[in-house]
């Protein structure tokens, strides 16, 4: 899923201070699961903002809403009938949701309430870690199912680099060396022979480098 992290309240306060009627808009998908922008976080942020502005003698009208998804026309449309009730929307969705709302409601300012961090997994209670960088051309079949693009600090395709120590990355003792994980998997799969296959120079045009990416499916278009 998409992993996001709440922005500091101070930053949000600074962005919204000049608006009077705010909609705090959550999303029921990824950001709910990673506890950054679901219904609960909407309630908490709204309450915090209300208290802050009451305290400043600048009471605002703060509305709460959480959509099923902010990355889908269908759900974002639910806002249309009331959109003029808000001077600005604080969206707790990932960057995708914020933009989709901004594109749809051209004259309403959109303020992100979270920082979108990565594509990751819920590794443990309170711990979310990156697993994919959406490079657009998956190499996992050749790397024991462990991704060197997202999990190696140098995205080395023929690793490990010289900085791997005791299975950890040179950037931090808390970061696993992706190539150590790859080797562990290859060993478990009895495929250590594959290690010596040279990974060819990667086509990064399917990555960020190629510009904004799209998937078009003529077979499902109506």
């Amino acid at each position: 899923m998409i992993i996001a992290e709440k922005k500091p309240i101070e930053e949000i306060i600074d962005e919204v201070k000049d608006f009077n009627r705010l909609l705090i808009l959550g999303c029921n998908e990824c950001v709910t699961v990673c506890e950054a922008g679901g219904k609960k976080e909407v309630e908490i942020l709204a309450s915090a903002l209300r208290m802050y502005f009451i305290n400043k003698g600048d009471e605002k009208v703060i509305t709460e809403n959480t959509l099923e998804r902010q990355c889908d026309h269908e759900y974002l449309e639910e806002l249309r009938s009331n959109i003029d009730d808000y001077d600005a929307i604080v969206s707790l969705a990932c960057g995708v949701g914020v933009q989709f709302a901004a594109e749809k409601y051209l004259t309403t300012p959109l303020i992100p309430g979270v920082n979108t961090v990565c594509l990751g997994a819920n590794e443990d209670r309170g711990l979310w870690t990156e697993r994919c960088q959406a490079c657009g051309s998956c190499v996992l079949a050749r790397t024991g199912g462990i991704c060197p693009v997202s999990r190696c600090a140098k995205r080395v395709l023929n690793g490990p680099c010289g900085g791997s120590t005791n299975g950890k990355c040179e950037i931090s003792k808390d970061v696993d060396c992706a190539w150590q994980l790859i080797l562990d998997r290859l060993k478990a799969l009895d495929k250590m022979g594959d290690y010596e296959k040279i990974a060819p120079i990667k086509d990064w045009s399917t990555d960020r480098a190629g510009g904004p990416r799209t998937v078009t499916r003529e077979d499902v278009k109506i």
Binding site: A153, V156, L157, N158, C161, P200
Partner: peptide, 9 residues
């Protein structure tokens, strides 16, 4: 950082 290629490449 760039790492378009790695050292072997």
């Amino acid at each position: 950082n760039v790492h378009d290629l790695d050292s072997m490449q």
